[in-house]
Design a protein around this nucleic acid. Sequence first.
DNA 1: GAATCACATAAGTGTATGCTTATGTATTAG
DNA 2: CTAATACATAAGCATACACTTATGTGATTC
Lengths: 104, 104
Amino acid sequence: MSETELFRALADPTRRAVFERLADGEMNATELRQGFEMSQPAMSQHLAVLRGAGLIAEQKLGRNVLYRINPAGVAQMHTWLSRYNAFWPKRIDELKKLLREMDQ
Amino acid sequence: MSETELFRALADPTRRAVFERLADGEMNATELRQGFEMSQPAMSQHLAVLRGAGLIAEQKLGRNVLYRINPAGVAQMHTWLSRYNAFWPKRIDELKKLLREMDQ
DNA sequence: GAATCACATAAGTGTATGCTTATGTATTAG
DNA sequence: CTAATACATAAGCATACACTTATGTGATTC
């Protein structure tokens, strides 16, 4: 899981939209394809890139493969981005607000 | 400032390293080039991509151009990533810790 | 004012990449 | 058991992109 792979995986708008779809929950490739004007092999390629980057994980159930977001990939991006927290002055108020919501 | 441009700008390892250098503070292109085996036009191109993506801002001082990190670009990435906070279970503890440190 | 410096832009090149059609393998349904 | 389904892989193509050398413009130095 390299940072380059992370960013490259998300740099393509189609592939990023696929990743964003998985935020709604685990899906197989056919479900993921709904709503996209895309061939089946294209989707397969995108999923391979996302998997290679560590952003998604798969689970084979017979001929079906279920894909879901891999928390480790998300965490890695968070870690990278956290270096730049000093450039984000509004974070204190927003984090406090977030924590308030979480504690409810 | 599109998300695609953001991710694409950071997807190249050289360019990401340039961006990471700017976290240390404002620099001109020649300073930025130190430590990189890179031609001057290559650096110019990278800076143009980062600027186009909204990740850096520039300030011209005569023939010198100073580059610095643009907080808005960082914030935009934060916003995108925050959609995936649900996949990051350790965040509550770490955020509380961060806030504690901030309040000191 | 000439020379030097700092940077942007142009043009070219080799490699990578997002798409396609074609094909293959494994699983499931009837 | 055959046909259909689900998905991965192969191969090809057009476009994008990170690099280079070459060049140009503007600012600074001497």
